[in-house]
């Protein structure tokens, strides 16, 4: 009698704890995209190169705070629905800019946008290498790469 009462409560809490374990397992993922535990990755990468860009962070604008983990695929930025970063910004074009990986470096190129893309203060006319932490300005949105 008492056993079933306590047992049920324990099971109920076990369910909650099981759910919390799932929450914990992707606590460190910057966005929903990066899911593997970061511990493994950091150890492996340390040996090979010091600072590689691992994520793209939106620092200003409507989407501020959004992080996208970089996995080697090109990142499309613009108002089009299928962009990696979808902007709702009157100053951004449908297909505004692209970030792509060449070798170990990320390059930004403008895809013929109306208002242009700026790397720090320079207008992007040809593909430019993006160092870590340098702001890229697209309309009202500012993004940067971080390790």
């Amino acid at each position: 009698m008492q056993l079933t009462r306590a047992g049920f409560l324990i099971l109920l809490w076990l369910f909650v704890l099981a759910a919390l374990r799932v929450v914990r397992s992707d606590l460190y993922a910057a966005s929903g995209l990066r899911v593997s535990a970061p511990g493994f990755r950091r150890d492996k990468e340390k040996g090979r190169r010091g600072k590689a860009a691992r994520q793209l962070v939106v620092t200003h604008g409507a989407l501020a705070g959004t992080r996208i983990s970089l996995e080697g695929r090109p990142i499309l930025i613009g108002r089009a629905d299928d962009s990696t970063l979808v902007l709702d910004d009157d100053y951004a074009s449908t297909r505004h800019a692209r970030l792509s990986l060449r070798g170990t470096d990320w390059y930004v190129e403008d895809l013929g946008s109306t208002n242009g893309t700026y790397l720090d203060r320079a207008k992007v006319t040809a593909p430019l290498r993006v160092p870590l932490g340098v702001p890229i300005r697209i309309g009202k949105t500012v993004i940067e790469l971080r390790s």
């Binding site: 099971l11 799932v22 992707d26 899911v35 535990a37």
Partner: peptide, 8 residues
């Protein structure tokens, strides 16, 4: 340790 699913 009843069915506690491992991470994913």
């Amino acid at each position: 340790t009843t069915p506690v699913p491992t991470a994913g």
